[in-house]
Design a protein around this nucleic acid. Structure first.
Length: 579
DNA sequence: CTAGGGTTAG
């Protein structure tokens, strides 16, 4: 009587509170035999605060009356389903230590977790246990294993496993297919795809996505039209492809044409607009979303952070915290937020976040630490930045570039060079951002000669200087008094100079009181920017310094009246913009 | 239970 009531209760258990009540009931009546079943049932529901549920299941597991591999398997599967991969693997290890014989659920879930967190060592040791526990013929376990190798890029082993499998499902085929697609072997993928006996949507999607990512939109479109059945993922793959090759308009056409959109669709479009620099369109889409999830918020946040709108980013972050619809920030959220703080030079804001970081359940990783290096360096705490840099598990290109830049703006050119040399010794290939940091270091130290050498060495790494690099060089040359050289550099630029470049020249002209070039620079600045007040006042102070009082006065007057000002003796300069 | 479409740092 009691047990039937218990069974019905357990089947309805969908919250931590209910689980606790039922558990109490079980303990009072001495029905510990039901504990594993309770775990099984309470994890079947898709609860909102699954983390609390996971925690409770975990603690129950350790207080079981007798160890039970079924219960362990349930929790491991739950963890891997919810993305708690590290936890799933460590649970599996604990289970193994207790000498419990794993279920196929436990093994396949643990393998999936290893694949996701790139834990090859763990994966291979579980592979060994697959033989010991006799799962050689279990399709689920075999497919999970094959997927592990496929995800690790070891297509040889994956293929071998596939060929030796006595029984294959369409999942096994698809897993290997996506491996071929991901490693970029599209010809082989296409051949393999043609062989799949019962192709399903997922097989087609993998192929479409492969061509789309490779930039072959023609082939992607052809396949997309041939597909017997399309789902959201098919459309989303096409949108991703269009965005990848820069045709945001085609992506939008796809977006409008599809029967309905989901979170992935919205987020992909938002990220697409972000890459395109179209913040307004991104925000418009974001506002139209009914159910904003964590990932779409992250995409919008990243859009703000990457398009120099740090204030808007922080505003959105605060909204996320306010909304309390379970939009819990994660690591991705924070990396954008840190970037925003860095752009504002707002270390205080980070301190506030840091004090709440445990509430968010976030642990600092290399990715976040790298964002922090930049933040601390920009706020002048170079020692703290160094400390973080040394604490990194793996120092990659981005981390080195951040640190080099940090040394650059904190007046430590020799440290920047040392970092750069160590980086090269570690076979990390520098990119444009690395050189931004290096050139900044030379600029800050006023090392013209070395800076120029560095600038010229960029081509040795196959790099073409961007407009920002030219800006730094103009600043470096100009500050040191090489105004003509700076000007020559500008007119020989392969791209159209922007206000950053001309502004740097203007500033240098102010520093060295060069009227002639100052007028040229201003002429270009006002052509490129509507609000020219700052430029005029710079020019005006040059006039004042060299004693051209009339011109200085004219400048001031023009600024007050906001009229268009004709700069004296400059009619010839307009011919120089288009060499 | 195992496969597909997506967000992050310089």
């Amino acid at each position: 009587m009691v047990t039937t009531k218990l069974m019905t209760l357990m089947k309805k258990c969908s919250s931590v509170k209910q689980a606790k009540q039922i558990h109490a009931h079980i303990l009072i009546n001495g029905l510990t035999f039901f504990q594993p079943l309770l775990i099984h049932h309470m994890l079947l529901w898709d609860v909102i605060n699954y983390r609390t549920m996971a925690q409770y299941a975990y603690s129950m597991l350790h207080h079981l009356h007798s160890p039970d591999s079924f219960a362990w398997g349930c929790v491991i599967r739950f963890f891997s389903q919810k993305g708690l991969f590290t936890e799933a693997v460590s649970l599996y290890v604990q289970m193994h230590r207790m000498r419990l014989c794993p279920t196929s659920h436990a093994i396949s879930s643990a393998l999936k977790s290893c694949a996701r967190i790139q834990d090859m060592l763990g994966g291979v040791s579980i592979h060994g246990q697959v033989h010991v526990f006799g799962f050689n013929t279990c399709v689920y376990v075999q497919t999970a294993l094959l997927d592990l190798y496929s995800k690790m890029g070891d297509m040889g082993t994956a293929r071998k496993m596939f060929d030796e499998m006595p029984e294959k499902s369409v999942v096994s085929w698809n897993s290997l297919l996506s491996g071929y697609v991901k490693t970029g072997i599209l010809d082989e993928a296409q051949d393999f795809f043609d062989e799949i006996p019962g192709k399903d949507v997922i097989s087609w999607n993998a192929m479409v996505s492969g061509y789309a990512k490779a930039g072959n939109m023609d082939q992607a479109c052809t396949l997309f039209q041939q597909m017997p059945e399309r789902n959201l993922a098919s459309w989303n793959a096409m949108i991703t492809g269009f965005i990848e090759c820069g045709s945001i308009a085609s992506a939008r056409k796809c977006f409008d044409a599809m029967p309905r959109q989901n979170c992935v669709t919205w987020m992909t479009m938002i990220a697409g607009y972000s890459k395109d620099g179209d913040v307004d369109s991104a925000r418009r889409l974001f506002n139209q979303m009914d159910h904003k999830d964590l990932l779409s918020c992250n995409a919008m946040l990243a859009c703000y952070a990457q398009n120099s709108k740090p204030k808007e980013a922080l505003e959105l972050f605060n909204d996320m915290l306010k909304l309390d619809i379970n939009i819990h920030p994660d690591k991705v959220t924070l990396s954008s937020v840190i970037s925003a703080c860095s752009q504002l030079g707002d270390l205080e804001h980070w301190f506030w976040i840091e004090s709440h970081i445990n509430d968010f359940g976030i642990v600092l990783d290399d990715h976040l630490a790298t964002a922090l290096i930049d933040l601390y360096a920009k706020c002048g705490s170079i020692d703290k930045a160094y400390e973080l840099f040394h604490s990194l598990r793996k120092k990659d290109l981005v981390a080195h570039s951040a640190m080099i830049y940090g040394c650059g703006i904190n007046g430590r050119p020799s440290d920047a060079i040392k970092l750069f040399e160590r980086m090269l010794a570690d076979c990390i290939v520098p990119n444009l951002v690395t050189f931004t940091g290096l050139l900044t270091a030379y600029n800050h130290a006023g090392l013209v000669e070395k800076g120029y050498q560095c600038f010229n060495s960029m081509k040795d790494y196959g790099l073409v200087p961007s407009i920002d690099h030219y800006g730094i060089m103009v600043d470096l040359l100009g500050r040191a008094g090489y105004l003509d050289e700076a000007y020559k550099l500008i007119i020989n630029m392969p791209m159209q100079p922007n206000t950053g470049v001309w502004g740097a020249l203007l500033l240098a002209c102010r520093l060295h009181n060069n009227v002639e070039l100052g007028e040229v620079a201003v002429q270009h600045c006002i052509k490129l920017e509507s609000d020219a007040t700052g430029y005029y006042s710079l020019l005006s102070s040059i006039y004042a310094t060299v004693g051209k009082w009339d011109d200085a006065k004219k400048m001031r007057k023009g600024m007050e009246g906001k009229e268009i000002i004709k700069i004296p003796g400059c009619s010839w300069t307009s011919n120089l913009t288009t060499p």
